[in-house]
Simulated assay, not measured.
Amino acid sequence: MTIKTPLHRHANMSHPATDRPVLLIDADATLSNLHACLGERLDAVLKYLDLMACIHLPDHAEHDINTISTIARILVQDVSDVFRVIEQRRFDILD
């Protein structure tokens, strides 16, 4: 028999594509690990958008532009979700 325990130390990530969260953030991770996660994603999306800004996409490449936008949105949403966890921890300390 499997006993399900609540995941109090995990925070949900945003999931506009699903009804229920499937990815979680370890809310108890060290601030340096959370910062590293943010840094990696933010650096990746900035490099990606810089690359996209330098490429010429023909006018008929609407599908490509939608894909680029979706990838950037997902990475920025990840960053926002981890920032939310850091902010919540800060407010928990102040309370």
Rank of each mutant, 00 (worst) to 15 (best):
E87K: 15
I68G: 04
T67A: 11
D50Y: 06
D95C: 11
D81K: 02
L24T: 02
N12T: 01
I74M: 14
Y48G: 02
T18M: 01
I86P: 05
H10K: 07
D43R: 14
P16S: 05
K47V: 10
I71Q: 05
A53Q: 10
M13C: 06
L42P: 00
D26C: 02
P6W: 05
L46F: 11
A61G: 03
V76W: 14
D19V: 00
V22R: 00
P6E: 10
L7T: 02
A27R: 01
A27L: 03
L34R: 07
D28C: 12
P21C: 00
H35K: 11
N66E: 13
G39C: 03
D43W: 14
V45C: 02
D81C: 01
A53S: 12
I74V: 15
D59Q: 09
P58H: 15
L75R: 01
I86Q: 11
I71M: 09
V45R: 04
P21S: 02
D19I: 00
L7S: 07
I93R: 15
V76N: 12
V82A: 05
R20K: 12
I74K: 11
A44R: 07
D43Y: 14
D64V: 09
A72F: 03
I71V: 13
I86G: 11
Y48D: 01
S80C: 13
K47S: 12
H63Q: 14
I74C: 15
